[in-house]
């Protein structure tokens, strides 16, 4: 797996065992897109919420709205933030599609994209706001 190193002010830190959870979720859903929410605090991921992609599609995702409502409530009650939103690209690069950019309604969260199109999986993170895409550094921590 390749995790790109990018310099910049924005950064997300994810413990390796949580990144593994995300990657295995993407594998399980393959060839459809997997999606989920990473809850955390101050840019550090603390919990993975694997969500249901109600579109069951290899080119599209939509998180089940009731599940999203419930998870967002739990995150709020735990005093955490939606640090990141992730989804997989079974056949495309790890870069936001036009649809990803158009439907990025959470600019304070980082969008993580996992590409499964190459033999080596690729994980990248982006800040998306009003059509502007900026790559964000992902730091994988050991604990």
């Amino acid at each position: 797996m390749r995790v790109r190193k990018v310099r910049g002010k924005h950064k997300i830190i994810i413990p390796s065992h949580l990144l593994d959870e995300v990657l295995s979720h993407c594998d399980v859903e393959y060839p459809d897109e997997a999606c989920g929410i990473l809850a955390g605090k101050e840019g550090v991921v603390l919990k993975v919420y694997k969500m249901k992609n109600i579109e069951n599609s290899p080119i599209s995702y939509l998180i089940d709205s009731k599940e999203q409502f419930t998870v967002m409530k739990e995150i709020r009650e735990r005093g955490l933030d939606i640090t990141a939103i992730y989804h997989s690209h079974p056949d495309l690069d790890a870069y936001p599609s036009a649809k990803d950019i158009q439907l990025a309604f959470y600019p304070e969260s980082v969008y993580i994209i996992i590409s499964l199109s190459e033999r080596e999986r690729e994980v990248k993170a982006f800040h998306i706001e009003e059509g502007n895409v900026k790559e964000v550094e992902i730091k994988v921590s050991l604990k």
Binding site: Y61, I63, Q68, H87
Partner: peptide, 10 residues
Amino acid sequence: VSIIPAIAGG
């Protein structure tokens, strides 16, 4: 009342 933008993309 909770207003919740969807999480979606392609």
